[in-house]
């Protein structure tokens, strides 16, 4: 059992996500930075689908009531065990009674804490991910609060205390201001100039940007759209389309561009103009409030290559720790 002494700004239980229910409006939820979540699990000998804690900007203080092997990955929140600094991206032994504490993220936004055996909250629709909008998954469907107690699953004994991820596999969260996007979906709604402006703009990440959506501020988007006679059922606004499904990572043009993240709405009537590549969604999860980002259009082959190369890297890390 892990007792929450201080919850931090927003700490939730997350895993790889809840799948198979998008058609009834259920977004995947799950760790915003899947890479950091997955590596955290491998380091302590877990499979990638074990649940970790996702911490945001300000980390929690946690008291362990049992011995455990843990690892912190993602944004560096200067983790400490009983006040003594412990390394990131490394399997660390904690003993019953130890307090693990986290400070503020100075680069990146989100840290992940894995525990050998995983955070063993009950599954809802085959996932432990927290989805706060309807209050399901994780610990009581919500952000952690002081006094919460989290059960830990039984460890498989694969963890090697002290084992660390190679520096080459640790992302640099200070340089994540260019985000790759595969343009498409409803981008035919943009004029050529509108598309150019969209891709040429430095968009600022708003302070509301969260697990639901990365809301961006910048120039007026209405002017980027092609005038047309609206099709039946779409509604009169030029940014409206007949309500359709939104991919996770797609950019919805609703007054401002909003990149739909893992707790987002699954569909709606605003034109989407492209989709952030799966690996850059992880980078976006670490992009800080008020930072400026630029979209770089890539073709699908480039996006697939980048994904395949990250998958290889993850397989390499998995093999190091789990075999």
């Amino acid at each position: 059992m892990i007792e929450v002494l201080e919850p931090g700004l927003s700490t939730t239980v997350q895993d790889t996500g809840r799948y198979g229910h998008y058609h009834i409006g259920m977004p995947p939820s799950g760790a915003m930075d899947q890479y950091a979540h997955t590596v955290a699990n491998y380091v302590v000998g877990n499979d990638e689908d074990a649940a970790t804690l996702e911490m945001t900007y300000a980390g929690p203080d946690l008291k362990f009531q049992e011995d455990a092997v843990v690892a912190a990955t993602g944004a560096d929140m200067e983790p400490k065990r009983n006040g003594e600094p412990i390394p990131m991206w490394t399997a660390v032994q904690v003993e019953a009674g130890d307090v693990l504490s986290f400070e503020f993220a100075t680069e990146g936004v989100r840290s992940y804490l894995s525990v050998a055996g995983g955070i063993d909250v009950p599954e809802v629709m085959e996932s432990r991910s927290t989805y706060t909008l309807i209050g399901i998954g994780g610990h009581e469907g919500r952000d952690l609060e002081e006094g919460d107690e989290l059960p830990v699953g039984s460890a498989n004994g694969n963890a090697t205390v002290g084992a660390a991820v190679d520096d080459g596999h640790v992302p640099d969260y200070a340089n994540n201001d260019t985000i790759s996007v595969v343009m498409g979906l409803c981008d035919y709604r943009l004029t050529d100039e509108g598309r150019e402006e969209f891709l040429g703009t430095q968009w600022k990440i708003s302070d509301e940007a969260d697990r639901v959506g990365c809301r961006l501020t910048g120039p007026d988007i209405e002017g980027m759209f092609e005038e047309r006679e609206q099709p039946f059922g779409a509604g009169p606004d030029p940014t409206n389309v007949v309500d359709l499904g939104y991919p996770v990572g797609s950019i919805q043009m609703a007054g401002q561009p909003i990149i739909l993240m893992r707790d987002a709405v699954t569909g709606g009537g605003y034109a989407t103009v492209g989709t952030v590549t799966s690996i850059d969604r992880d980078m976006l999860a670490q992009a800080r409030t008020h930072n400026e980002i630029t979209f770089e259009a890539v073709d699908v082959e480039e996006a697939l290559e980048a994904r395949a190369s990250q998958d290889e890297q993850l397989e390499l890390i998995r093999a190091t720790f789990l075999e």
Binding site: V181, V182, L185, F232, V242, L244, V276, V300, A303, A306
Partner: peptide
Amino acid sequence: PRYEYGGDDHVFVELSEEMS
């Protein structure tokens, strides 16, 4: 119908721009 990539892991198919 338009067949569109949604990043590297989605395909979106718009059968028609209008509802029917």
